[in-house]
């Protein structure tokens, strides 16, 4: 791996991930080689079963490749323990999931503070940062609402706020707009682009959504566990 690559948030080298389903071997990733540089705004697209989510999981160290190597922020994922990976994700990676996945018993602000609390940030700083980010995502005044009291779009904004509140280098988003209408999706994408531009956070989305693809600067298309095309959009 070159020095330049070491600095890159994501480097995949011939990553393969096979699953056994009964007698059939499913080749979810059939050999992906990919580098994503710092500050990129990338969309991973492709039909269902093309390997987008598996790639994101392997990149995050949530899933272990059958062969090949993944480097996450310069760390060789295959050589790290569960706890080391947890720490790396805690400090450097933010997540946005398809179905919001907020902690239902915590308020919007507490959900945003959650990762910072795990990071050991003081109570006052946590509260301050959480309020500022909730304001930035347009949820000022809703800090004390629980997820059930928020709309889908609002919950996803909280999820984005949670992902970026801990100031990660990289945010991985698995189909973040899948459950949102197009207007809300557009607003969410604009918000993430702003964060990418202002805070320099690298964003990688897996998506089916044309709107998300249209707003990405780099568009990677996958098919049958392989990268079909990789292009920079103007």
């Amino acid at each position: 791996m070159s020095e330049v690559q070491k600095q890159a948030p994501i480097v995949c080298e011939s990553v393969k991930r096979f699953y056994q389903q009964g007698d059939v071997t499913v080749k979810a990733l059939a050999g992906v080689t990919l580098t994503i540089e710092s500050g990129e705004f990338v969309s991973l697209s492709g039909p269902s079963g093309s390997g987008k989510t598996t790639l994101l999981n392997c990149v995050a160290g949530l899933d272990i490749p059958t062969s090949g190597e993944v480097y996450l922020i310069g760390n060789r994922v295959s050589q790290m323990s569960k706890s080391q990976l947890a720490d790396l994700r805690l400090r450097s990676v933010g997540f946005v999931f398809q179905s919001y996945n907020l902690v239902p018993v915590l308020s919007a602000q507490e959900n945003v503070e959650f990762v910072m609390e795990l990071q050991g940030i003081s109570r006052t700083e946590r509260a301050e940062r959480a309020r500022a980010i909730l304001q930035e995502v347009g949820l000022a005044g809703m800090e004390h609402r629980r997820p059930a009291e928020l709309s889908g779009g609002q919950q996803q904004r909280v999820a984005v706020a949670r992902a970026v509140a801990s100031r990660p280098q990289l945010v991985l988003a698995d189909e973040p707009t899948a459950n949102l209408d197009s207007k809300t999706s557009g607003a969410l994408m604009d918000m993430m682009r702003e964060m990418n531009a202002e805070h320099g956070i690298t964003f990688v989305f897996s998506t089916h959504d044309k709107l998300v693809m249209s707003r990405a600067r780099r568009l990677i298309k996958m098919h049958d566990g392989l990268i079909e095309s990789d292009e920079i959009q103007s």
Binding site: A60, A86, R89, L90, N101, V103, P104, F114, V115, L118
Partner: peptide, 16 residues
């Protein structure tokens, strides 16, 4: 289970 998995993904250690 899903919530726990989200927490683990976010970087919560299994021990926690």
């Amino acid at each position: 289970t899903r919530e726990f998995c989200v927490m683990l993904s976010l970087g919560m250690r299994p021990g926690y």
